[in-house]
Every structure is written in C-alpha cells, then in structure tokens.
C-alpha cells in the first residue's frame, strides 16, 4: 500500500509523517512517532485507552485514520505536563492512588482534562457519564472520581 504524507500539529509541535491510507492514527502515534502513551485496549472504540484530542474534541485515536489529521491539531498524554510540571490532574491521580496498573490512565487523564476544560465543576454523575467510554478494570473507578474532583477543585481555586 502506497503511503501518504501528512502534516499535522501534535502537542503544539509541527509534525510530518507518512502512513498507509488504512492506518489508524493510534498506530501512527505509537509506531511511527514514538508516542506510546496512547494505548490500544480494543481497537474498536470500546475502551478509551487511546483517547487523544483532535481539534479540541476528544476522540478514540483507533477510530481516526492517520490521513485524516492533515492540518489538524492533536494533543496526547505526552503533551499534558509542562516539562517536569505535572498537570493538576496528573498530580491528583498520584496523590489519590487513582491508578493501579496504569494502562487506562493516559486515556482517562486526557478525557478528564477535556471535561474540566469545558465544565470546571462537574457533578460526580456528570463525571461518571463523561468517563463511561474509558474502561478501567483495576480501580472500580472510585479513586479516579475522587482524584478528578480534587484536581477540579484545585484548578478552580488556582
């Protein structure tokens, strides 16, 4: 299959890559660009482990073709911290032991940040429905909800 050249922006940096026309963005990020923070848990949009944002919207990168992101702006988990300065959500996940194995964590952090950017003060119910597309099999979600709410509170008062 002939590859196609794509120019895009990832975490604020201009990036060019080539990919096959049927290659999911997730594979491009992981296999061609070394951005392995997004994980493949299912490849069919059912687990959310590959969540990134595409032009400000949260998407499963397994359900986007690499060729579609020409000219787009993408953010991934790798862009969440500023150097060594963790995002409040990242710090809250550590403080609250909101991860066990950690495989779902990048996707959940990207999803939670996308919510808080729109709604800085979600209810637990809003948060739980927002995160319904991110499966976590370790935690039972309890500490994830607590961590996001703690980060939200800190971000509101910062």
């Amino acid at each position: 299959m002939k590859t196609i050249q794509v120019a895009t922006t990832i975490n604020g940096d201009a990036v060019e890559f080539v990919c096959a026309p049927d290659e999911p963005l997730l594979d491009v990020l992981r296999n061609r660009l070394g951005l392995t923070g997004a994980k493949e848990g299912c490849g069919t949009g059912d687990c959310g482990a590959c969540t990134v944002t595409l032009d400000g919207r949260m998407v499963c990168s397994c359900l986007v073709l690499g060729v579609e992101v020409e000219g787009a702006k993408i953010t991934t988990i790798e862009g969440m911290a500023t150097g060594n300065q963790l995002h409040p959500l990242q710090q809250a996940f550590l403080d609250h032991a909101a991860l066990q194995c950690g495989i779902c964590t990048p996707g959940i952090l990207v999803a939670a940040k996308t919510l808080l950017d729109r709604n800085p003060n979600p209810t637990d119910t809003e948060l739980r429905y927002w995160l319904a597309g991110n499966l976590c099999r370790c935690t039972g979600y309890d500490k994830i909800i607590a961590a996001v709410q703690d980060a939200a509170q800190k971000m509101r008062t910062a």
Partner: peptide, 9 residues
C-alpha cells in the same frame, strides 16, 4: 451513540 470519544466524530 458510543462514548463521549465516539461523539467527537
């Protein structure tokens, strides 16, 4: 339809 992620598309 689908998750909030799927809703983005």
């Amino acid at each position: 339809i689908g998750s909030k992620q799927v809703q983005g598309r």
